[in-house]
């Protein structure tokens, strides 16, 4: 029934010092649809691909605004993300109430990281089956953090997680140097292009299946969906097609 004797629970090390249950939880992240995040000097952007279970059903929410200064994007078990996001909302409000200050992103990320670690060291618990990108602006400027089921958290310049996200990461690595100086609009376009790169051939980004989350210095975090992103989709991919067209000409 099991692949080996060491993968029954999250309190057993394998002889190589691995914890299989945690590694399997990371697989759950890869089952989720892709999300991308990028930061510049002034902005933090999230972009997500939404999936619907069937034609007539609604799309699964991928971006959750937490406080006015930040939000998260998720890949994996949405219900686990809801538990974590509720916790984050609570902690964020507590910070505003007790100190009258927006919670620093490094701090809230560390909090959920610590919570997730507990789930990997105690019998009867399971690791969270969700990966998160946490993006927003605090007193130290714009930030992007990645959260993994293992409890690992890292601050990133850009990041992509979820199904086929390797393609998105490849795009991000190629354009890494441009992000810091990018304007808000350029950053959104980069995020959309990275997202597009990880789609399978037969799929496209549409108003229905794409979500954006944008925040900046002096700009509250806000989610954009549907008609609001039509313009960005149009301007981003027209140009991409043109470029594609040109390069094809060069090839012939």
């Amino acid at each position: 029934m099991f692949r080996n004797n060491y993968d029954n629970d999250s309190v057993t090390f394998s002889p190589q010092g691995r914890i299989f249950q945690v590694e399997y939880a990371q697989e759950a992240v890869k089952q989720g649809s892709v999300v991308v995040g990028i930061v510049s000097k002034t902005h933090a952007v999230l972009a997500a691909l939404k999936r619907n279970a069937e034609e007539l059903s609604s799309y699964q929410k991928k971006i959750i605004p937490i406080d006015t200064h930040y939000g998260i994007a998720l890949a994996g078990l949405a219900s686990d993300a809801r538990v974590l996001s509720n916790f984050m909302k609570q902690q964020s409000l507590a910070s505003r109430l007790t100190y009258d200050r927006p919670i620093p992103l490094a701090q809230i990320t560390a909090r959920i990281g610590d919570r997730a670690q507990t789930n990997t060291q105690q019998y009867g618990k399971r690791p969270y089956g969700v990966g998160l990108l946490i993006a927003g602006v605090d007193a130290k400027g714009p930030h992007l953090f990645e959260f993994q089921p293992s409890g690992v958290t890292q601050e990133m310049i850009a990041c992509g997680i979820g199904a086929r996200s390797q393609m998105a990461r490849t795009y991000l690595e190629r354009n890494l140097d441009e992000f810091e100086g990018s304007t808000r609009e350029e950053l959104i376009k980069h995020a959309l292009r990275a997202l597009k790169d990880s789609l399978s051939q037969d799929k496209e980004l549409t108003m229905e299946n794409t979500s954006l989350g944008v925040s900046g210095v002096e700009e509250d975090f806000r989610m954009y969906e549907g008609q609001e992103i039509a313009n960005w989709l149009e301007t981003t991919f027209e140009r991409a097609e043109e470029e594609g067209g040109e390069s094809m000409e060069v090839d012939t």
Partner: peptide
């Protein structure tokens, strides 16, 4: 603990993020 985690680099950002008298008074 908090300021230590982001490193020495940006003194100005560090200063901005430091708890202010207003934050302290609220607390």
């Amino acid at each position: 603990y908090r300021s230590g985690s982001s490193g020495h680099g940006d003194e100005e950002a560090e200063n901005r993020a430091m708890m202010s008298a207003k934050n302290l008074h609220t607390y």
